[in-house]
Design a protein around this nucleic acid. Structure first.
Lengths: 128, 128, 128, 128
DNA sequence: GTGGTCTAGACCACT
DNA sequence: GTGGTCTAGACCACG
């Protein structure tokens, strides 16, 4: 696993994001068993407690469930999985819209910026 | 000024947002002199230190400049103003697009989510 | 035997519950011989150690007794059976009453909540 | 504050219970500021991390909210407060009813046990 | 001084 | 060896 932990936002939140993405993209399949906490902690280069926190928060969200002495698994509830995905998407969309509004842009302008951004990213990279 | 300071996000960032929006919308015009820190602090009901920080970060961005004994002003550089606005917008758009991609959505789906979100917010509130 | 083992509460406790209920309801009669540990373990789909633990705890309670080379039996002491049942029931009732008091509810309100709860459960499910 | 931390159940859950009870009973009033984490930790004789966990979970429930550099407060949302109280009560009632069912008792018998228990507790103490 | 996050290292119950 | 909890002590951003 190649993992880069970034900047200012709490590690456990970043880890949660990564796992959400991995289920959304199918890298983690419903019902699949994930590696033990301690091992994941090593892989990510974080303290086991931090990993534990990330995973147990994901458990509260319903994305994972654990069998105490047996391991931790991705939920089999596909409906929930999709719901979570949509929820995340709505949140992102709303955040974007709020930001654009607070910059004084209209809905149409916000659309333009998005389209432009998606187009650029589709081809090359913007930043190093 | 009616201001509501919300919860968990740093006050100085919220204030910066407000100023950005005010220049974007024209409430603050290029070259206009803004009130002294202490007064603004009182208006916003925040600690002068907090207001000071917000303003000096906006100076770093170039949105404001100060003449030492004379006060603080909105930049006269309209090109810069627009550039800042666009830059923020592009960042927001890109962040949004990244999030959607990492959730496994296509550009079209991302557009749909945005449109839906903007429509809802136009009418009522989503969260309590 | 159709058995669903639920999530977060220790398996051996769940098994103990099941046996208690079976004696209370008459599915297991006083003096009746129960199946050997290994067989029960297979029936329940659990590790023999776990079954062993459940049964030996029930022995400590007096619900079961074993004759070393002969097998394991439900106690013939009906008085004891009833006493155990009542004891458990009183404990549960007391716990419930303590909780309601600590939430600031009266005896009557506690009754109402119980009645409502029992009624609901008679029909459908509350949780997913 | 006289606090007894009991047996086998996680400390942070016990602390959460105590706070829920204190709001339900009115010992903590809506909007009231509570002591800082470190101080509460000392009062309860637990590690600050443990107290932090308890409080932040209560925050997720909505019972508390925090202003990052200012302190932590009981929610002002009285409706929510009542809802939480009812929710707790329903949970307790349901648990009680489940236990009684698993012991093979009828609804009426469960009622009797409860009434008896509440009556006893109304006068003296059962245990030392 | 406030809440929040993190590491390090330990112990526990359960299988 | 699994998940879960806890302590001890540290550092950070914010006001």
């Amino acid at each position: 696993m190649n993992i880069k932990l970034d900047d200012n936002i709490p590690i456990y939140l970043q880890i949660m994001s990564i796992f959400r993405r991995m289920t959304a993209s199918g890298d983690l399949k419903p019902g699949e068993r994930i590696a033990p906490v301690r091992e994941l902690a090593k892989d990510f280069g974080v303290n086991p407690n931090t990993m534990q926190r990330a995973l147990s928060e994901l458990e509260k969200e319903g994305l994972l469930f654990s069998e105490r002495t047996n391991g931790r698994f991705v939920t089999k509830n596909i409906a929930l999985l999709n719901e979570l995905r949509s929820h995340e998407a709505m949140d992102a969309a709303e955040t974007y819209w709020q930001q654009m509004k607070s910059l004084g842009f209209s809905k149409e302008e916000a659309l333009d910026f998005f389209i432009k951004s998606a187009a650029e990213r589709g081809q090359g990279k913007r930043h190093a």
